[in-house]
């Protein structure tokens, strides 16, 4: 026996009309969505433009960040950046940025992207459209010339295990990896720091008071030395459980004078950074954590020119 129900009322009629409207809106949305999705031809047309017009040092920034299907089509040598939060990336190694956008996609507010991306950037030329894709070229005012990158210089570096009270023990070069006693090691590679893919020095410290020390010779003169340190991948968010801070120190290798010191506390996602005036030609990077467990460091050390022109 059905429950007693009220007689049909105007309210019920309005509810029915409302439901009908909602359903039609739903259908409308589903019919509209495919019209804002790019076809392969659109992607190829963008790739052709970039093949012709991209210059060394250029980068492609995806908006929204997750539209990585473009990777299937874009020229191999051209870096593509797309990660959660990439609109705030200075992209300081890249004097020009191609923004490949899909502005009509749902929940893609242009204003939020523009607020984070545009400061310091100037558009060069007109925005071009390829179906629902738009391509715009920007001069990156946040770019800076990179004179030295520790990740690239690692093969020529001297890597040692430094333990207080004893002589440093050289780490053995095994291909592209320097292997030290007690499981510590250092290598250059692409790693994730708070979702950002970064080519960095990947260093696993030995634990205890000992440290991995990397000494770089012949660092070119530059306006600044910039050191960034983060914990790679999913270990960054963890706290407690005996985890200890990761310490990364930059020293003048000739005098032993400290230039910069960073501490990445457990639970810190992303990079902590320090920038100091350039100068020393021999640099030593020291990486230590009392407990090495899940303290896999991603370190970016670069010698940079002064800030670029906006």
């Amino acid at each position: 026996m059905p429950s007693p129900e009220p007689r049909p009322s105007r309210l019920a009629a309005a509810e029915g009309a409302g439901f009908l409207l909602v359903a039609l809106l739903g259908l409308g949305f589903q019919a509209w969505l495919p019209t804002v999705l790019p076809k392969d031809g659109d992607e190829r047309a963008v790739a052709d433009v970039l093949q012709r017009e991209a210059e060394p040092g250029d980068v492609v920034l995806l908006h929204p960040w997750w539209t990585e299907r473009a990777r299937l089509f874009l020229p191999e040598g051209l870096p593509v950046v797309g990660y959660l939060g990439d609109e705030t990336d200075a992209l300081l190694e890249h004097p020009r940025i191609w923004v490949l956008a899909q502005p009509s996609l749902p929940r893609t507010p242009a204003s939020a992207f523009a607020a984070a991306f545009l400061p310091g950037r100037t558009r060069l030329g007109e925005e071009r459209h390829f179906g629902p894709l738009s391509l715009s070229l920007y001069r990156n005012g946040r770019a800076r010339g990179v004179r030295f990158s520790a990740a690239e210089a690692l093969p020529t570096a001297r890597v040692t295990l430094a333990v207080p009270g004893s002589e440093p023990v050289p780490c053995v070069q095994d291909g592209s990896t320097f292997r030290c006693l007690s499981g510590a090691h250092a290598e250059a590679g692409i790693h994730e720091v708070f979702y950002q893919p970064v080519r960095c020095l990947f260093v696993v410290p030995p634990g205890g008071p000992g440290a991995v020390e990397l000494t770089f010779e012949g660092v070119p003169a530059s306006a600044a030395l910039r050191l960034e340190a983060g914990i790679a991948w999913e270990h960054a968010w963890k706290r407690g459980g005996g985890l200890t801070p990761l310490h990364a120190s930059l020293l003048d290798a000739d005098t032993g004078a400290p230039l910069a010191a960073l501490s990445v506390e457990p639970g810190t996602e992303g990079f902590v950074a320090a920038e100091v005036p350039g100068g020393p030609r021999r640099l030593r990077l020291r990486v230590q954590s009392d407990n090495a467990h899940e303290r896999e460091a991603c370190l970016v050390l670069r010698a940079l020119d002064a800030g670029g022109t906006p």
């Binding site: 969505l33 997750w66 990585e68 990777r71 299937l72 994730e192 893919p197």
Partner: peptide
């Protein structure tokens, strides 16, 4: 799992996929 995709970039020496499943553009 982003780190694991980067491990592929590293091991394979490329950031370009050969194919994929993309639903309404989403990887």
């Amino acid at each position: 799992f982003r780190e694991q995709e980067l491990a592929v970039w590293q091991a394979f020496g490329t950031t370009r996929p050969v194919t994929g499943l993309y639903i309404d553009e989403t990887p």
